[in-house]
C-alpha cells in the first residue's frame, strides 16, 4: 500500500541495508527489523526521551524519524554501550549471564551502584544522552540539564543525578 525504500545505515558499527515502508519509524526499524529491543518507545511524540539513540554523535529521538531519513546515518543504540560479556558454560561467565555487570560504562555502573533505575524502561534513553554528553565534553552541570529531556516515572531522578555526578568524578571530568 505504501512505497517501500531501501535504506543503508550503520548501526552499532555494522553496515545494514533494510527494505522498509517509507513510513516506518526509525525506532521500529531498530526494534523490530534489527532486533535491537533495548531502545524503548515511551510516547512516539518525541517528548519522553525513552527512545533516544546516538545519531552521528548527537542524541536523537528515534521515534521522530522515518527510516529513510536515516539513510547514511551512523546510529548507536544501548546495546553498543557496554562491551559484551562472554557467555559460556562452567566458569566462563555464564553464571553472571549476559546481563551481568562486566564492562559497563562508568555511568551505567554508577546507575547500578546508586539505584538510578527501577523499572528500567526509560533507562536506555538516559544512558544514550549521558554517553553522548560525555563524548561531546559536556560539563557535569550541562549533563544534569540534559536529563531534562527524559521522563522517568519511578526514580524521582535523585539517584540518576547522583549517578551522573559519580560518573563525571570517575571519568576525571572536572567541570
Amino acid at each position: 500500500m505504501t512505497e517501500r525504500r531501501r535504506v543503508q545505515l550503520v548501526v552499532n558499527g555494522e553496515a545494514r541495508t533494510i527494505d522498509v515502508d517509507v513510513r516506518t519509524l526509525l525506532s521500529d526499524v531498530l526494534r523490530h527489523e534489527l532486533g535491537l529491543t533495548g531502545t524503548h518507545v515511551g510516547c512516539e511524540q518525541g517528548v519522553c526521551g525513552a527512545c533516544t539513540v546516538i545519531w552521528d554523535d548527537n542524541p536523537a529521538r528515534s521515534c521522530l524519524a522515518l527510516a529513510p531519513q536515516a539513510e547514511g546515518a551512523r546510529i548507536e543504540t544501548i546495546e553498543s554501550v557496554a562491551a559484551a560479556v562472554a557467555v559460556g558454560g562452567g566458569d566462563t561467565g555464564f553464571a553472571e549471564g549476559a546481563g551481568g555487570l562486566g564492562a559497563l560504562h562508568p555511568f551505567q555502573r554508577a546507575m547500578h551502584e546508586l539505584h538510578g533505575l527501577q523499572c528500567g524502561f526509560c533507562t536506555a534513553g538516559i544512558v544514550m544522552t549521558v554517553v553522548a554528553a560525555e563524548r561531546a565534553g559536556w560539563s557535569r552541570d550541562e549533563t544534569l540539564d540534559a536529563l531534562g529531556g527524559h521522563v522517568c516515572r519511578c526514580t524521582g531522578y535523585v539517584n540518576i543525578r547522583a549517578a551522573v555526578e559519580r560518573a563525571w568524578q570517575e571519568l576525571g571530568l572536572t567541570r
Binding site: E96, F121, T123
Partner: peptide, 10 residues
C-alpha cells in the same frame, strides 16, 4: 537485575 536492564537486554 540491573545489569540486563542497563545493557538494553530487558
Amino acid at each position: 537485575n540491573d545489569g540486563r536492564l542497563l545493557r538494553g537486554l530487558g
